[in-house]
């Protein structure tokens, strides 16, 4: 199977995730969008490894980086939500806009 369908799927996942990250008000839902975007990145990296450069492991290393980024994003995201909830009783991006004002 050629690389294009996989890359198109990765692009679709990335764009759906971006839509979620841009539209959701809740920080936890926003993080779900980011997870989907990183899922697209993982798929694209696997495709590039398989179809263009299978001889080196660079594509696989990129997947490891993306998976680690997913874990870090989740952990820090939940810690920020916890800190925000403790001080402001909120979990929405629009209610945490002190720096904007």
């Amino acid at each position: 199977m050629s690389a294009e369908p996989f890359l198109l799927l990765a692009a679709a996942l990335f764009c759906v995730g971006l839509f979620g990250a841009l539209t959701q008000q809740s920080i936890v839902m926003l993080m779900m969008g980011l997870e989907l975007m990183l899922g697209g990145v993982i798929l694209a990296a696997a495709t590039v490894w398989r179809h263009f450069a299978p001889a080196t492991a660079d594509g696989q290393v990129l997947i490891i980086v993306a998976v680690t980024a997913m874990a870090l994003e989740m952990a820090v995201g939940f810690a920020v939500v916890t800190a925000l909830f403790r001080s402001r009783e909120t979990d929405m991006t629009d209610m945490a806009a002190e720096l904007k004002e």
């Binding site: 890359l7 198109l8 692009a11 841009l22 450069a53």
Partner: peptide, 30 residues
């Protein structure tokens, strides 16, 4: 606005994916 941004981005990525002169596979999987 987010739907427009994401639609445009997908169109751009799809155009790039379908029109890019992808290189031939170098080497074979281990």
């Amino acid at each position: 606005a987010a739907a427009v941004v994401c639609g445009l981005l997908f169109a751009l990525l799809a155009a790039g994916i379908l029109s890019a002169p992808w290189p031939d596979r170098r080497g074979r999987p281990p």
